[in-house]
Nucleic acid binder design. Structure first.
Lengths: 127, 127
DNA sequence: CAGCATCCCATTTGATACTG
DNA sequence: CAGTATCAAATGGGATGCTG
């Protein structure tokens, strides 16, 4: 963690709290359906905006831009603009982004593993 | 996967599609800030409603109930009502819930690992 | 093509009050 | 204590039109 320590010599608890609140903030940013689906869609590939829109089924132009901005801001995707005409913008996961992807993958795996259990639970609950 | 096959002898693609769409649905249910924070807070413990509300900082009464219902419906938390007065309701992760928790934990770990990178990316972006 | 801005409706969320 | 109901406020999200 590259966080600079406080000048005033505060207990490092202060740093921990700052880190935790940031973590929570990031967590909230990223723990969202579209972000996950975008990260999943990108995987190891580099995709253009329009390719992503096709890939992430059901996402609107607006949500895609919004989430891409957010992911870029948090250093999870790399946005490369080719100054051609027509413009060409490519998105790729950064190292951090690939790290996140691993956890999202795990979650997908988890979902599939427990599909049966979940379907059953739902039937029971809905009755 | 315990899904029963269709009577009509449809190609198993049909099952796969059903499974995928269910997975996506679950994914959407669960890929939400509060659900994650609740699962994290529960961990290996059994907590009462009010304890959870204190534990998950910032969650409103309503969001907590709503997400707990959702998690219960999907078979991720077990809800045990003690018919005492005053009432006592306890929540615990099921096996499936603990599986999800593992992936959420991974995501927390990931967040902490990349805090520095993310902070930097943000500063750069916001400028 | 990518993306910003705007308008507008739908959903989510929080605060409050009420019940078993 | 746990949970439901209700209303208002905030946010999410789609559609459209405009720009480089």
């Amino acid at each position: 963690m590259s966080t600079k320590h406080e000048l005033k010599g505060l207990p490092e608890d202060a740093d921990l709290r700052r880190a935790d609140s940031l973590a929570r903030e990031i967590f909230s940013d990223v723990a969202n359906k579209w972000a996950f689906l975008i990260v999943e869609a990108l995987g190891e590939r580099t995709l253009r905006f329009s390719e992503l829109r096709d890939e992430v089924e059901g996402v609107s132009h607006k949500m895609l831009t919004q989430n891409l901005r957010m992911l870029e801001r948090n250093g999870l995707v790399d946005r490369k603009v080719h100054p051609t005409v027509p413009p060409r913008v490519e998105y790729t996961l950064t190292a951090a982004g690939r790290g996140l992807r691993a956890t999202v993958d795990a979650m997908c795996g988890w979902t599939h593993e427990h599909l049966g259990h979940i379907e059953d639970a739902r039937r029971r609950f809905d009755a």
